[in-house]
Design a binder for these strands. Structure first.
Lengths: 113, 113
DNA sequence: TAAGTACATGGCTATATGGCCATATAGGCA
DNA sequence: TGCCTATATGGCCATATAGCCATGTACTTA
């Protein structure tokens, strides 16, 4: 039953929620390449630094990234290397939507004449 | 740059957001086993049927499930089979948190005497 | 047709989120 | 020390979300 495993699902939902924002997805993809400081990410995203800093705090608190202060700057990197695989599935949801849409259009063509 | 790919990230974030709720994760895991009607899911989750119905609408609109009305009931099933793999990574985030915590405790033990 | 079952939707409230600006904190350098 | 840069935090507002209850819709069965 659900109630027994509720904690289980809540923990997982928290992580997904932390990922579920366009800017945070961008950050994760960037960090896949290499670590980045807040200023770099801020430039790339084009939002207020305070906003980016909060996004990073969300990712950090979810256990997705760690930070590392060096001098003046704070560098963030992924704590877990697998996030990429992770997106294979998201992609396939998107692809199946495209496919279905194409089929719907094809079907439309067939039926309309 | 981020701006150019913003649509891209928004589409993916939408899917993750749809998954980022304990009840919806539960639903997805249930549907991995087999299709389910709304009433079954409602019983299992123990919330109002209207609430469950709305969760299903969220999953459907994100392209994660489809529905199939048969007689009186509506059966939902996954549109994309891979969601399970998908969670391998979420798990590893959780595991790395546990591990780190354990290490922190071990370190604490070492340093405190 | 009438009544019952299974869902969906609208309305409402409480709470969370994202964004900016303003301000605080911390390190580097003169 | 004092100023500059990089980052974090608090305050605030607009919007989104989750939940329930009440109601609407569609199918079934009598």
């Amino acid at each position: 039953m659900y109630v027994e495993k509720k904690k289980h699902y809540e923990a997982r939902a928290k992580i997904l929620k932390a990922l579920a924002h366009p800017s945070r997805l961008f950050i994760v993809e960037e960090l896949q390449k290499d670590e980045r400081c807040v200023c770099d990410l801020t430039d790339m995203i084009g939002a207020d630094m305070s906003t980016v800093s909060k996004h990073l705090a969300v990712l950090k608190q979810a256990g997705i990234v760690t930070d590392d202060k060096r001098g003046n700057q704070v560098f963030y990197r992924l704590r877990v290397p697998c996030i990429l695989n992770f997106f294979g599935c998201v992609e396939s949801v998107l692809e199946s939507q495209v496919k279905e849409h194409a089929e719907a259009l094809a079907g439309l063509g067939k039926e309309s004449f």
